[in-house]
């Protein structure tokens, strides 16, 4: 049984699953809300609706300037990648839990593994299909984000411009965004194979995300020259923040002006981030395989 055949089957299942398209629709709707709120914030600050007579200033000028950049090119790319790695992360967890956990709940894992007993191949095919599907979703979201940026930027009177360097930065940003999601995808898979259910996958993935983000937030209270920072920089969230920050900075944004710990002077180096994210992903992926390979495959629950 070739890997490519298993991948084709996984892609067929995932791309036809209503959950996939529902998650994409929810994500796009939330992007409209989010970009719309940023637009309102900047527009009210400028007094756009009153011809400049009445201005609502709730943020400092440098912060408003950052948000203005979110809605004009090339900053809109950075803003879209930021959304991909926040809301998109949650969507990826739900998608992954659905893809693996439902196989247990519906009893279809027995159907599959009775035919393809090499469980590692089955798991790798599923992981590749999931990551490629997330990549395809990312493409759609990016195009949608560009459209929103152009719309809101034009309404604010400055849509900005895109240079060749910005276009060339997109592929690397896509790779970084995918790398940020991969450990969560792997942890969710491991939760599914450990708990052998959809619920275990969703709960495991979301709890891990919450704990990880919360631990990452602790760095807000850590002194820059504190030895504790070395420890905190081994946390997954800190290394993910490196990639998120790099993606924002690639498109002219300065995220540290909005969130203090998104500062490259504090965050791990890109090399460390690459290595640690890979290490976390491989460890979680191996755990997923270990439990899939070692445990009985139950029928439908």
């Amino acid at each position: 049984m070739s890997f490519l055949s298993l991948f084709r089957a996984e892609w067929f299942k995932l791309s036809r699953r209503p959950l996939t398209w529902i998650l994409l629709a929810i994500f796009l709707a939330l992007m409209v809300v989010y970009f719309g709120m940023i637009f309102l914030l900047v527009a009210l600050n400028d007094g756009m609706f009153t011809g400049g007579e009445s201005q609502l200033k709730v943020l400092a000028d440098f912060q408003v300037e950052q948000y203005r950049r979110w809605l004009s090119f090339p900053g809109v790319f950075g803003a879209t990648f930021s959304q991909i790695n926040s809301i998109g992360g949650i969507c990826a967890i739900v998608l992954t839990a659905g893809a693996m956990g439902s196989e247990y709940s519906w009893g279809t894992l027995r159907l599959q593994l009775a035919r393809h007993p090499r469980r590692e191949r089955y798991l790798i095919a599923k992981i590749v299909a999931l990551l490629l599907l997330i990549l395809a979703g990312m493409g759609i979201v990016l195009v949608f984000g560009v459209g929103l940026g152009w719309l809101f930027g034009s309404l604010l009177g400055d849509a900005g411009s895109v240079g060749l360097g910005d276009i060339l930065a997109i592929p690397l940003a896509v790779v970084r965004a995918l790398a940020v999601m991969t450990p969560y995808v792997m942890f969710t898979l491991a939760s599914c194979t450990f708990g052998r259910s959809l619920l275990a996958g969703v709960a495991g993935g979301l709890i891990f995300l919450s704990v990880d983000v919360s631990l990452g937030g602790i760095t807000l209270f850590v002194e820059r020259d504190s030895p504790a920072l070395l420890f905190y920089n081994l946390l997954l969230q800190q290394n993910i923040n490196t990639f998120v920050t790099l993606n924002s900075r690639s498109f002219g944004l300065s995220p540290e002006l909005l969130v203090a710990n998104l500062d490259m002077n504090v965050l791990p180096s890109p090399l460390q981030a690459t290595l640690l994210i890979a290490l976390y992903s491989i460890s979680f992926g191996f755990a997923a395989y270990w439990w899939l390979a070692r445990r009985d495959i139950p029928g439908a629950s």
Binding site: S5, R17, G107, T108, G299, A300
Partner: peptide
């Protein structure tokens, strides 16, 4: 045990493709 959101034919296609 099959994928409830797929048709009978598509369920068999998943198995055939794999």
């Amino acid at each position: 045990a099959f994928y409830p959101y797929l048709s009978g034919r598509d369920n068999l296609r998943v198995l055939a493709r794999a």
